[in-house]
């Protein structure tokens, strides 16, 4: 899923300091799963902002709405033109949300309430870790099921660098050297020779380097199947 962190409350209050009436829009997708932008978080953010503004003697009226997803126009359209009744709108979805909202409701100002961080999963309750860099050409199977593009600080494809020490990456003591894990896993499976083969060049044309990407499924574009 897409993982995000909520922005600090001071930053959010600063975004809407001139507003009297705002809308906070949550998303039931990834940000609900990573507990940052779902119904509960929308309620808590709205209450927190209202408390802050009441304390400042400048009350803020806040409406709350949670969309099924903010990355599909069908759901974004459910907000309707009443979105323009507010001085501003805070989106608690990933970075896709405020953009889909801005594209549909051109007269309104949309602010991101979260910092979108990475594609990852929960390794324990409350802890999420990056697992995918969305490079567009997946080769996880070549590395024992562990992605060195997302999980190696240098995205190395041919083994660990000199900064690997006792299985830990030199960049951060909390970060495992994924190449250490890949090699260990392959050794345990008796498949170390898999790593010795010459691999084709990694195509980076499909990665972010080639600019914004688009995925087209012709059969869906033509109609429902």
């Amino acid at each position: 899923m897409i993982v995000a962190d909520r922005k600090p409350i001071e930053e959010l209050l600063g975004m809407v300091e001139d507003c009297k009436k705002i809308l906070v829009v949550g998303c039931k997708g990834c940000v609900t799963v990573c507990n940052v932008g779902g119904l509960k978080e929308v309620e808590v953010l709205a209450a927190t902002m209202k408390i802050a503004r009441k304390k400042a003697g400048n009350p803020l009226e806040i409406a709350e709405h949670v969309l099924e997803r903010q990355c599909d126009r069908e759901y974004v359209s459910q907000l309707g033109e009443e979105v323009n009744d507010y001085d501003a709108v805070l989106s608690m979805a990933c970075g896709v949300g405020p953009q889909f909202l801005s594209e549909m409701y051109k007269e309104q100002s949309f602010f991101p309430a979260v910092n979108t961080t990475f594609f990852g999963g929960a390794t324990q309750h409350g802890v999420w870790e990056e697992r995918c860099a969305g490079c567009g050409t997946c080769g996880i199977h070549m590395f024992g099921g562990l992605c060195p593009i997302a999980r190696c600080a240098k995205s190395l494809l041919h083994g660990p660098c000199g900064g690997s020490s006792n299985g830990i990456c030199e960049v951060n003591k909390e970060t495992e050297c994924i190449w250490d894990s890949i090699v260990k896993k392959k050794m345990e499976a008796g498949q170390l020779e898999d790593l010795l083969g010459v691999k084709n060049f990694k195509s980076w044309k499909t990665a972010r380097d080639g600019g914004p990407r688009r995925s087209i499924r012709e059969e869906l574009v033509q109609g429902n199947i």
Binding site: A47, I51, K54
Partner: peptide, 11 residues
């Protein structure tokens, strides 16, 4: 008791 209940009371 949830976070929102406590915040609502303060609010």
């Amino acid at each position: 008791v949830d976070i929102i209940h406590l915040l609502n009371a303060i609010e």
